[in-house]
Write a protein that binds this DNA or RNA. Structure first.
Ligand SMILES: Nc1ncnc2c1ncn2[C@@H]1O[C@H](COP(=O)(O)OP(=O)(O)OP(=O)(O)O)[C@@H](O)[C@H]1O
Length: 676
DNA sequence: GTACCCTTCGTTTTT
DNA sequence: CGAAGGGTAC
């Protein structure tokens, strides 16, 4: 038999072999769905399908990279490299670099981050002349616009559909917002998908072109696709419908950002003559863990029952511990890890610590550092949200996209260079009559004439520097060197010391910026050939830099700290779940909104990450907004099957109660008593 | 135009 | 408790 197919069970094999027509693999956790995708691609390549014709969609960029590596080990590296693998967002971004002119943008468009978005929304509301009373909070507008785009609504459609006052106002803001984005040659995250959808929808010949390229489509984590993503897939799959989706409705955990489980449930309706395949063998977890997870998910009403079994043995009971406070919890985790690593055949990188929300990692990190336990914090875009990093990125964006006024506003006064609010005001005024972007205006006579001689000199110097580096960066390569030179010459690197008066803080910020520049160097090394600056920025905007495959520090041997969301699709021999408390997991807000079913699925995902050992902790008290609050254990804990769980004290974790030891101990005590 | 002090406020989850 | 934004005093 085929070498590739040998490594699959009969059901998986069936899915891998069926390369024509729609295939849906609907199966529980750890049953080898991702493996089906990978091996199916390998099988297709072995059977002469050109790699260029294959498109694989993953949920994260990291998953795409790992799949590519796995693929390279199954087929030739060359073939693997030619398969298109990525997230919907990165796929769309790359596609738009080639095709976006038809949508009235130019290929050097930049991607708006959320601070850009917030700024534009404020500007839009100001331009509409909304008073403080009428203004809608930025987050609500953001939600409205994102929701509209996910559901294929343009500003005009949103306006037409608006009936309530709020919708009327919000869609007006949406319209302004979109106009501002267009003026600045910017797209937001959701636009990446929506633009491709509209482009294909309105230009059949372009759709046709891509249908002829991507003849075979595979999608991982299909339960977390949203409406645009589905519509894109439906269009691209066309009549041939060579599409294979894998997923698990019980692991749908992104409903809050528009993902639709119906997509996977109704796949057979959407794609007629679907071959539906179910996988029931779990290759990941012991039966104690799998049984507990099955029991948990069965507490949700109205789901499609799945039967799952495992031959990974019975395994050990789950351990549940209550700690007095959060410091104790953090200390316990560190102690437990030290113990486990020194007494069992377990490495740091076999261990993961999972939690509901990012801030819960803080104390754990401190505690691990104190115990000198190497760890790696995944996801958590804290680093990229730092002011100094975003400022540095804005300096680069302004080079790539001269129309990016948002970035210019961001960095014009950072560090202060004599160009403040007054200058910004006159830029805005002038823009109403002279239709140029802010960077262009900076070197316009009409603008410079309005300034004091001091401001004029500052503006000219600044704009000369930008123009000089725009020229330099118009060629690919030498990014590291050029970025360094540029940030130095434009006064940003040294300016940091002026901006942050506290010495220590300034140095820390400078360090961060250096790390950012190092990321550019790493990107350059990874890249085959010479990258353009815009390519790095795109990779940066798509958070590609966020989850690089483990190399670097710790030689890869480190405990993983991650949210449950970011752990989706991963597996670890030894898992800790922390902060298992009411109002944390399930989250307070989900309780208020009545969306605890998704929280329970999230808990299911957390449990099913573990292969052999699972320890769950909750704390009796926790600081909330700087004041201590007493915490109750999560209801979810009471759903666990009692026979699979040991509720233990801290001390018992370190001295497992062994019946023989116990008997021995009693004997000794009796002996001592008798002697006396 | 800039520096610093004061309030306010809020905390899911992420491509 | 911390970040971030607004307001006031140089
Ligand atoms: N046929 C098989 N033979 C041996 N091991 C397998 C087989 N199929 C899958 N596995 C192993 O089972 C584990 C889980 O596989 P995989 O990650 O593909 O499952 P999944 O269904 O995608 O999981 P999840 O639902 O959590 O994303 C992996 O370690 C994989 O190597």
């Amino acid at each position: 038999m085929d070498k590739i197919l040998e490594q699959l069970n009969p059901e998986q094999r069936e899915a891998a072999k069926t390369i024509k027509g729609p295939v849906l693999v609907l199966a529980g956790a750890g049953t080898g769905k991702t493996r089906v995708i990978t091996y199916r691609i390998a099988y297709m390549l072995r059977h002469g399908i050109p790699p260029e014709n294959i498109l694989g969609m993953t949920f994260t960029n990291k998953a795409a990279r790992e799949m590519k590596e796995r693929l390279a080990s199954l087929v030739s590296e060359n073939d693997a490299a030619k398969v298109t693998l990525g997230t919907f967002h990165s796929f769309c971004a790359r596609l738009l670099r080639k095709e976006i002119r038809i949508m009235g943008f130019t290929p050097n468009f930049t991607i708006a981050d959320d601070s850009d978005q917030a700024g534009i929304i404020k500007q839009a509301q100001a331009e509409l002349g909304l008073s403080k009373r009428e203004e809608i909070p930025v987050e609500r507008v953001l939600w409205f616009i994102g929701n509209a785009k996910d559901n294929l609504r343009t500003p005009r459609m949103a306006k037409n559909a608006a009936d309530m006052d709020f919708d009327v106002l919000a869609s007006a803001v949406y319209e302004r917002y979109q106009q501002i984005l267009e003026n600045q040659n910017m797209l937001d995250f959701d636009d990446l998908l929506f633009f491709v959808y509209r482009m294909w929808n309105e230009n059949p010949e372009i759709l046709k072109k891509y249908q002829n390229i991507y003849k075979y489509i595979l999608v991982d984590e299909y339960q977390d696709t949203n409406m645009v993503q589905f519509e894109m897939l439906r269009m691209l799959a066309g009549n041939a419908m060579n599409i294979c989706a894998v997923g698990d409705d019980d692991q749908s955990i992104y409903g809050w950002r528009g993902a639709k489980v119906e997509n996977i449930i109704r796949f057979p309706e959407h794609f007629p003559n679907t071959k539906l395949i179910k996988l029931e063998q779990n290759y990941r977890s012991t039966n104690k863990i799998l049984g507990s997870a099955n029991k948990i998910i069965s507490c949700n009403p109205g789901r499609y029952e799945k039967s799952l079994w495992s031959n990974q043995g019975e395994g050990e009971n789950l351990k549940v511990l209550q700690l007095r406070g959060e410091e104790e919890e953090a200390a316990f985790i560190a102690d437990a890890i030290s113990e486990v690593v020194s007494t069992q055949d377990i490495d740091y990188n076999d261990i993961a610590i999972l939690y509901r929300s990012n801030h819960l990692s803080r104390l754990i990190e401190q505690s691990l550092r104190k115990s000198q336990i190497p760890y790696k914090l995944v996801g958590g875009q804290e680093f990229f949200k730092r002011k100094e990093i975003r400022d540095a990125a804005a300096y680069l964006k302004i080079i790539v996209n001269p129309k990016d006024d948002q970035s210019l506003l961001r960095i014009l006064g950072v560090p202060s260079r004599g160009l403040g609010d007054k200058v910004v005001e006159s830029l805005k005024v002038l823009q109403r009559s002279v239709f140029l972007s802010f960077t262009e205006l900076l070197s316009e006579k009409a603008f410079l004439e309005k300034l004091s001689s001091k401001a004029r000199d500052a503006a000219s110097a600044f704009s000369n520097c930008i123009n000089k580096y725009r020229e330099i960066f118009s060629r690919p390569g030498d990014l590291y060197q050029n970025v360094n030179d540029y940030l130095l010459e434009v006064g940003y690197l040294n300016g940091l010391l002026k901006i942050y008066k506290d010495r220590k803080e300034a140095e820390k910020r400078q360090e961060n910026v250096c790390e950012f520049i190092n990321a550019i160097a790493q990107y350059e090394q990874r890249y085959q050939g010479k990258p353009y600056l815009f390519e790095f920025l795109e990779s940066f905007a798509l958070l590609d830099e966020n989850d690089k495959t483990e190399e670097e520090e710790n030689s890869g041997n480190a405990v993983i700290l991650t949210t449950v969301h970011a752990a989706k699709g991963l597996e670890f021999p030894y898992v800790f779940i922390i902060g298992m408390e009411h109002n944390i997991f399930p989250h307070e807000r989900s309780i208020k909104e009545g969306s605890t079913e998704e929280e329970l699925r999230l808990f299911y995902v957390a449990l099913t990450r573990a292969k052999n050992n699972l320890t769950i902790t909750h704390s009796g008290s926790r600081m909330r907004y700087g004041t201590p609050s007493s915490q109750r254990p999560s209801v979810f804990l009471s759903y666990l099957p009692e026979e699979n769980v040991d509720k233990i004290e801290q001390s018992q974790f370190f001295k497992p109660v062994d019946k023989k030891d116990l008997a021995e101990g009693f004997k000794n005590i009796f002996n001592i008593l008798n002697e006396k």
